[in-house]
């Protein structure tokens, strides 16, 4: 599906020029600061692109944002402050990792709820299975697979007529 991604890219504002995201002249002299800048860049969206981080994008806007991130970091901002600064300016759209809020609760909770609900259903299903087998009043697991069960199994496994 990447083909289509590219078609979208091309039709969008992003140039389809070979992505050459971070330019040599942007890199900060301090490697620790630079690596923080790269880490932050991966969490920020290039807002004129199709789902690209500013670290990946070669759009002029992404470059401006990368420089801005580095500027703030050099000025002594913490990672959190940089993200807050950018969110205040550009809105939540700039964050690739949406913050938990009333608007995104459904998004963040869905994985948990689906997994939890699925687990409950699976457990009930598996328990019922056990109940079905221990139908003779004995919920013990081992006993149920004795004579009647065996007979029924043999019957089931008999080749068809």
């Amino acid at each position: 599906m990447n083909a289509l991604r590219v078609m979208l890219l091309v039709s969008g504002l992003c140039t389809a020029l070979p992505a050459f995201a971070v330019q040599p002249d942007e890199i900060l002299p301090d490697p620790a600061l630079e690596s923080r800048a790269r880490e932050l860049s991966r969490q920020l969206r290039c807002m004129v692109c199709q789902n690209q981080s500013i670290d990946d994008s070669d759009a002029p806007l992404a470059r401006d944002l990368r420089l801005l991130v580095r500027e703030r970091l050099s000025a002594g901002d913490s990672d959190r402050q940089v993200l807050e600064f950018l969110t205040a300016r550009y809105g939540d759209f700039v964050l690739l990792n949406p913050r938990f809020s009333a608007r995104t609760a459904l998004l963040w909770l869905t994985p948990v709820v689906v997994f939890g609900a699925g687990a409950v259903v699976a457990i009930i299903f598996l328990r019922r299975q056990r109940g079905a087998r221990g139908g003779e009043g004995d919920p013990g697991r081992e006993a149920a697979l004795s004579t009647q069960e065996r007979a029924r199994l043999d019957d089931l496994l008999k080749p068809g007529p």
């Binding site: 969206r45 939540d92 700039v94 964050l95 690739l96 990792n97 949406p98 608007r103 994985p111």
Partner: peptide, 20 residues
Amino acid sequence: LTGDKISVGAPFFNATFVPL
């Protein structure tokens, strides 16, 4: 539905898909 624009990118999927 609401006109609000948010982004859901790689960091979200790394945080939710990988633990599963």
